[in-house]
Amino acid sequence: MKDIFTDFYNTILGFFRQTEKKEENAKDVACNRLRVVLMQDRTNLTPELLQRMRQELIELLSKYVEMDKEALELNFEQEGNQMALMLSIPVLRAKEESEIEEAEEKEFLEDETDEKTLSEEKSDEEIEDETADCDEASEEENSEENSSEEDESVEVDAEDKEKAEK
């Protein structure tokens, strides 16, 4: 009897609840978290590596398009039995051919000076250290931190280059 009562109560409650707009529900959160975790399990790609990949893609693509770096999304998605790497880039504008050529020239010059600036780049050891840090802290937090940090660093780099040009 008590059961019937609670059930009736739930029915009424459910009626009102349905009229409210719900935020992301527990099920969707679970599905999304699982997809990310399984992608990492399956590919052995750590959040750190994913971040590096993201970074390099940004650098490469910036040559051709001006984009909203913050909104760039790099995700694994499942399509049947296949894992697909989905890259979504909000493009602000495509660059002019002259700009691309300019960038290429700059690259060429940079390549020549690369040997001198090699010490500025991260050594493998440093990268490994970062990975170890990553394991300690929660993955989500870390990837967020990394992304904001590195995004900024790209912009700083770009500014530096501009200044250098002038």
Partner: peptide, 18 residues
């Protein structure tokens, strides 16, 4: 629980594990 979206549905699990 599935109905109230508190638990992954059968379809969700099948899709995720394919």
């Amino acid at each position: 629980l599935i109905k109230s979206n508190d638990m992954m549905s059968v379809d969700d699990v099948v899709e995720i594990l394919s």
